[in-house]
Design a protein around this nucleic acid. Structure first.
Lengths: 231, 231
DNA sequence: CTACAGTATTTGGTAGGCCATAATACGATT
DNA sequence: AATCGTATTATGGCCTACCAAATACTGTAG
């Protein structure tokens, strides 16, 4: 087994994604970027037609998304795109705060210059994306900032959890980053995280990370409660 | 819509679980309690026969378990019961520490006597289960202790995350609770959590919860590294 | 205009088949 | 005898087709 692992270095990387995985990505994408809106019904046969795959595949995909929390299943009525209620969103932000705070602290305690360098690179990318008003870029680079935070201290499981939760609030994220002044404050708060990590200040890094998430959460709450009555 | 929600209180609780859900529970159970061992292949057609359901259902179940992390899918080889490596287990314990610590702190800050009462009830149940050497009972009551911790402050999402992670280390849990002296130390640590909550000491409750998980993690690590060479 | 019966829609689930790939066994060739 | 190629088997991935039950819709009769 360890031999097999070593071989992994030269193992040919085959992109042999199964049809199911491709479909999964497509549908998840479609939900995340709003092609399917919360509450929309996801009729199996329609999806079959749209995706060009069989019901077998569609059903597996729907199951998968269900367990990811992106799809809810009404009994005998079928799957719909999950509604995000404000309470749940707040909880998700809170969990992210706990985990990202933990990761930030670990990064600070590790005290490796590579971490700081990697984070700064992401941060620059975020600033550039903001400057270019490339919101998709902001999201992607913010994700990569946090991914760095987790993976540099080998917290892949926690990163997985955060990632899973994040897709559920993705459309909120895209709204919060568009908020006035977020282009300045967001990166500022993130740079505070990096500063604390550079100083080796675990406590401070944790607090800074939690602050940043808390700020995002507050904006999200405002956005969500502002649009709720409109429905 | 709000009307429908109110009705939920009287809505008959129909056990009309779909076949798929029943099968899911069965297979998950089988994995968790060791009927299927880590690394075992889960051959679709065999499962069909054993469960008495069609391949469609089996496949959906496997997909679901895959996304829960209980099943791994080797490309071109099919699903196997996921192997739990020691690194991953430690990370899971760490995440639990962060989240249970958070919940404990929130409980303390809430300062409600009902929380304390409910926790003490679970704790007594745990002690009784230990006294009767009812290990399944210990696990169940420990779960319910933590469930209380989360749900009393309405952190259902976090509880879901913890639950999801916990099934992956379930067999570790059953080993750690059997450890010498765990029957005394475990409840003792948990009572420290309750004490801190009773005092309204958020900080202390968080630390106590994290300590408890850390202790479990240490035991799990010892158990796991002791059995690994044996394989 | 309302109640009711019939109809369409859609999910939950089953059966069975086809193809591709991987592993294994088996035989042939050197 | 060792190796190389080939047939077989096992299995996953994917598809079509079908049925039953629940739900939503619709048109008609009273």
């Amino acid at each position: 087994m360890s031999g097999a692992l070593k071989d992994a270095a030269i193992r040919v990387e085959r992109p042999a994604k199964t049809l199911r995985e491709l479909a999964l990505d497509k549908v998840r994408e479609a939900i995340v970027n709003g092609y399917f809106r919360p509450g929309d019904r996801l009729v199996e046969r329609d999806l079959c037609a749209q995706l060009g795959v069989s019901r077998t595949v569609v059903r597996e995909v729907l199951r998968h998304l269900e367990s990811e929390g992106l799809v809810a299943n009404l009994p005998n009525k079928g799957p719909i795109v999950a509604q995000l209620d404000i309470e749940e969103a707040k909880q998700i932000y809170e969990i992210r705060g706990a985990l990202e705070g933990m990761a930030a602290r670990l990064c600070a305690e590790r005290g490796s210059p590579e971490i700081v360098a990697a984070l700064e690179e992401s941060l620059t990318a975020i600033r550039n994306s903001y400057r270019d008003s490339d919101m998709a870029g902001v999201l992607a680079n913010t994700s990569s900032f946090y991914q760095t935070l987790f993976t540099m201290v080998d917290r892949h499981v926690a990163w997985g959890v955060v990632n899973l939760l994040t897709v559920r609030i993705n459309h909120l994220r895209s709204m919060t980053i568009k908020t006035e002044r977020r282009g300045i404050e967001g990166p500022l708060q993130m740079s505070k995280i990096v500063d604390a990590i550079r100083r080796g200040d675990g406590e401070g890094a944790q607090r800074a990370a939690m602050d940043h998430v808390a700020a995002a959460s507050a904006i999200a709450e405002a956005v969500l409660s502002a649009q709720k009555p409109a429905e």
